[in-house]
Design a protein around this nucleic acid. Structure first.
Lengths: 185, 185
DNA sequence: CTATACTTACCTATCAATAGGTATTATTGT
DNA sequence: ACAATAATACCTATTGATAGGTAAGTATAG
């Protein structure tokens, strides 16, 4: 693993716990075994590092999701698939969604970081909208599908946060169980 | 207004934009016109200030909500009333819920602050549970009402965050419009 | 006289960032 | 093949700003 990757991994770990201000060049450098000044070689400023972090997170998340059309073709529920990715982040990683945290503090974020965080949400809404359109076929419209996408993403982000602060994975289960009745409405 | 109150107000403003690390003793002192060392007279440590902030926010929010039983008696929908408080925070204040932000970064918060943040969510779930029980009478159970409470609070917190990062109040409207179908389920 | 509400004057730690330097490894021109 | 060039991946040392926190002193009101 390159030092650059190691720096991003260390930064992601810390950012997913306490946000943008929860990682510093010094700490990251110590963790990967270089000097803090050398971090500036890979990332000129902290803003650049933060932007790359959000960008990489978005790319990894979206590529892990795959194509919703493929899932529907294989008779898999893409929404359940989607919820599973969030469940994994919460239960296995025991951490928040990086962009969920960045999103909450977005008004205090450097511009580049904010833009990449925004892109995460737009791309996720697009993915969900397509998933719902493919799953429900003629029973929905682009607007209705997009509204459901916004609803699902909001609920997942919110319940993830509640689960973290109340230290209870059950909270996430409760909230996500109530997604289905909405979908069938 | 006392300096103590002014400090809390300034801290709340900053914290609701960028979280716990977005306010400092120096900045707060400058804003209210005292020296940073004098802030320690009112709040021994930043942890104490943060805890008081979350505590005061919770008290103000709960007392602004009033008693859900009273609302039901006056034929008002307590859930709509509740959603209105969040809408106000987002539209009028143009800021996140303080505890929504603290909740997202709760694993990096000093203990006292984390505990008061946790209390905010427990008290809000209790309020919503009672509201649903009073509104739906024999049509619900304590468990079902609590689950709905968790669902509503998750959705509100999540949609508030999405609205902030996407800079669109419509997102909040879309997400909250979909609360009612769930309630009637 | 004494508690309240500050002030001045510090401290130590940490922050992101910069300047200037050193090996090591690739690339390129002849 | 070999030397010149340049990019890669770091280093030490330092800057100016900012962080939270402390001790000792001062003004003021009851």
């Amino acid at each position: 693993m390159s030092k650059r990757e190691a720096l991003l991994n260390a930064a992601e770990h810390k950012a997913r716990i306490g946000g943008y201000s929860n990682f510093s060049f010094r700490e990251l450098a110590n963790e990967v075994g270089i000097k803090s000044a050398s971090v500036h070689y890979h990332f000129p400023t902290k803003e650049d590092l933060g932007a790359e972090l959000a960008k990489r997170y978005t790319e990894n998340f979206l590529s892990a999701l795959g194509d919703p059309e493929e899932l529907v073709k294989l008779s898999q529920d893409p929404i359940e698939h989607y919820v599973g990715k969030f469940r994994h982040a919460l239960i296995a990683d025991q951490k928040m969604c990086l962009c969920g945290l960045f999103g909450a503090e977005s008004d205090a974020l450097p511009n580049k970081v904010k833009l990449h965080t925004k892109a995460f949400f737009l791309k996720n809404i697009q993915w969900l909208q397509k998933a719902i359109e493919k799953r429900e076929g003629a029973n929905t419209t682009p607007v209705k599908a997009r509204n459901k996408a916004v609803f699902i993403l909001s609920l997942l982000q919110g319940s993830m946060m509640l689960s973290k602060v109340l230290d209870s994975n059950e909270i996430f289960s409760i909230a996500t169980t109530l997604i289905e009745p909405i979908n069938n409405h």
